[in-house]
């Protein structure tokens, strides 16, 4: 499985669900074979169930989408356990979150004055999360161009991993308003939300993350199982809100 490309993986894994994503995004009707793998935005892949699944984005521009796809594929690389982050819908998830209420600063106190503060005081940026992401992507690309002469998504996988590690460890400083480590943490945190949230949000396609760890999903009625599954694996096909809607 390791060396198979994404499309082969998607064609060979037959399961239920996830067709709702295509219906929800829609728009692009091109088919998988006509779309080069790795092309950033507006791409359509075959859904595991056979229908087309769009990777169309509403908030992210094409270069931003390329950045996010590369980053989530480094965070969640394709392997025996799951497809890569992009093919699990994590980039689509991030795009929709940024386009939606959370990205716009919902449930966030946005009044000034603004001061940097210390990390234990939490988020203090005057930017909404969507603006913060946009600035963070631009700052990362600027850093990559300055040090490696290319945008992040054009770097080799090894180079991308190194840039992300440096951001994570606080070893790089970005020019501009967005601190590299803070952006990294938000990016990683949001990607993990997408990978593990219910598939209704566009990520965790085919419940890949839930299957990987053995989380059975949403019905969750365990009155008897709490006794009968002590020290015993509970092997079921996970159910999502999407499946039950």
């Amino acid at each position: 499985m390791k060396n198979k490309n994404r499309r082969d993986f998607l064609k060979t894994v037959g399961t239920v669900g996830a067709t709702g994503i295509a219906a929800a995004v829609g728009g692009d009707t091109s088919v998988a074979g006509q779309s080069p793998a790795g092309s950033p935005a507006g791409r359509v892949l075959l859904d595991p169930a056979g229908g087309p699944v769009s990777h169309a984005y509403t908030f992210l521009t094409a270069p931003e989408a390329a950045f996010i796809e590369a980053a989530v594929d480094r965070f969640i690389p394709a392997d025996d356990l799951t497809p890569g982050g992009t093919d699990c819908g994590v980039a689509v998830f991030i795009d929709r979150q940024l386009a939606g209420a959370w990205g716009s600063g919902d449930r966030t106190y946005m009044q000034g004055p603004w001061q940097k503060g210390v990390p234990t005081q939490g988020y203090q940026s005057p930017l909404t999360p969507a603006e913060f992401f946009r600035a963070g992507i631009a700052a990362t690309n600027a850093y990559c161009r300055k040090t490696l002469q290319k945008d992040f998504d054009r770097l080799t996988v090894e180079q991308q991993n190194k840039v992300l590690q440096d951001m994570e460890q606080g070893r790089v400083t970005f020019e501009g308003t967005v601190p590299a480590q803070e952006f990294f943490n938000l990016l990683l945190g949001t990607a993990m939300q997408g990978f593990f949230a219910d598939p209704i949000y566009g990520g965790n396609r085919d419940k890949a993350a839930w299957k990987m760890i053995g989380f059975p999903g949403v019905i969750a009625i365990y009155s008897e199982h709490i006794k009968t599954y002590r020290n015993k694996k509970y092997d079921v096909e996970p159910k999502s809100i999407l499946d039950l809607s």
Partner: peptide
Amino acid sequence: AIPQIRDELKYAVRNHLMQNPARDT
């Protein structure tokens, strides 16, 4: 109600049953 209440992102991460800090914090 099931199944929507099992939405970890909405309730556990985005805190939809809680005080909205945009109004008062």
